Computed example of a mutant assay.
Amino acid sequence: MSTSTVLHAGISDEPLDLSHALDVVGNADCGAVVGFGGVVRNHDGGRQVDRLGYSAHPSASSIIAEIATEIAEKYDGVRIWVAHRTGPLEIGDPALVAAVASGHRGEAFAACSELVDTVKARAPIWKEQFFADGTVEWVGVDG
Rank of each mutant, 00 (worst) to 15 (best):
H20Y: 08
R79Y: 01
P88F: 02
E90T: 10
A56I: 12
A28D: 14
R79D: 02
S61R: 03
S19I: 08
V78G: 00
A83C: 05
L22R: 10
V33M: 03
V139R: 09
V78P: 03
V97A: 07
G45D: 07
Q129D: 03
A98K: 07
A110Y: 01
Y75N: 02
S19V: 11
A95Y: 07
H20L: 11
A83S: 12
M1G: 15
A95S: 15
G143A: 14
R122I: 10
G31L: 04
E128K: 15
E70S: 13
A9P: 01
A95W: 05
R105N: 07
F36N: 09
V25M: 05
I11P: 07
G143V: 13
V116W: 10
A56M: 11
K74L: 10
H84I: 10
S2I: 12
F36P: 11
E66L: 11
A68F: 02
E114S: 13
A99W: 01
R47E: 13
D117M: 12
A99N: 04
E90R: 11
L22D: 05
D50R: 14
V136Y: 00
D44H: 15
D76S: 08
V82I: 15
A95G: 15
D50C: 04
G46A: 13
G87D: 04
E73K: 06
V119L: 08
A83P: 02
V39R: 12
H84T: 09
F131V: 06
F130W: 10
E14N: 14
